[in-house]
């Protein structure tokens, strides 16, 4: 039996909204410790990893590990009916369940229940090594979203270079080019923290960075981690309960 109640149901809704443009079908991997999602986008360029620890839920029971295969667009349709202050209670049987039951409960006398059909999804699980990164940038999530959105009008590829003066986001395109430099700042409102061992410069597809910023409502700050010649990690922490992380393979010179 899997049964779990998330008091702030809107957090789960925001997670699905954050990933549904990248991931069509995915497994909710439920275990005693957590509910997790790991999935590549259809082009196999990026990877999405979601974690919500059991402590994020007010009641959590998972008798045995289970993978619940969902279609994110269909899940999103059901979550449209979630009230902004509603809790969600998830329920599924142990042995290859056909459906996932979700109860939406608000402060009033209304209880809504929905059943989402599940499917068998075969996925390739990638092992992501837990290695330190040469550069880690923490900045406001809405500021990162604005930068990515603004630079997209100039071109397809963004060069992110982290150096002594800060982090530079650069785009070169047919109509011209642009650079946005973000420097370390202690100001409470716009705090930017840059930890750098060595300068790093990498190229990324703006289209994917833009997909990642759909997770902006989940977190005040985004953490961007880079090392030479490996994927960038764009992390949106979900309080102390988990995260949505996006991994994007770099573009390299041929």
């Amino acid at each position: 039996m899997f049964e779990a109640q998330l008091v702030e149901g809107k957090t789960f809704k925001a997670i699905i909204e954050a990933i549904k443009d990248l991931v069509v079908d995915c497994n909710l991997d439920c275990s005693e410790e957590e509910v997790a999602i790991q999935s590549m986008d259809s082009a196999h360029v990026s990877l999405v990893a979601v974690r919500l620890s059991a402590s994020a839920f007010s009641n959590y029971r998972c008798d045995r590990p289970n993978s619940l295969g969902i279609n994110t667009a269909n899940m999103s349709k059901i979550l449209k009916m979630l009230g902004k202050d509603d809790s969600i209670t998830f329920k599924a049987e142990d042995e290859s369940p056909d459906s996932l039951t979700m109860l939406f409960e608000g402060g009033k006398s209304t209880i809504a229940d929905f059943e989402l059909k599940l499917m068998d999804i075969e996925t390739e699980q990638l092992g992501i090594p837990d290695t330190p990164y040469q550069c880690t940038i923490q900045m406001r999530a809405d500021e990162f979203q604005r930068i990515v959105r603004d630079l997209q009008v100039l071109g397809d590829t963004c060069t992110i270079s982290c150096g002594k003066e800060g982090v530079r986001f650069s785009v070169t395109g047919a109509i011209g080019n642009g650079n946005i430099l973000v420097r370390s700042s202690d100001e409470d409102k716009d705090k930017v923290t840059i930890n750098m061992e060595e300068p790093v410069e990498l190229n990324f597809a703006l289209r994917y960075l833009n997909f990642f910023t759909k997770a902006t409502p989940l977190a005040e700050n985004v953490v961007i981690s880079m090392s030479p010649d490996v994927p960038v990690v764009v992390e949106y922490p979900i309080e102390e309960f988990g995260h949505v992380k996006f991994y994007l393979a770099p573009k390299i010179e041929e």
Partner: peptide, 14 residues
Amino acid sequence: ETVQTYIRQYYPLN
């Protein structure tokens, strides 16, 4: 010219 790489090139299958 820059070419896009794939995520599988960097992480092993579990």
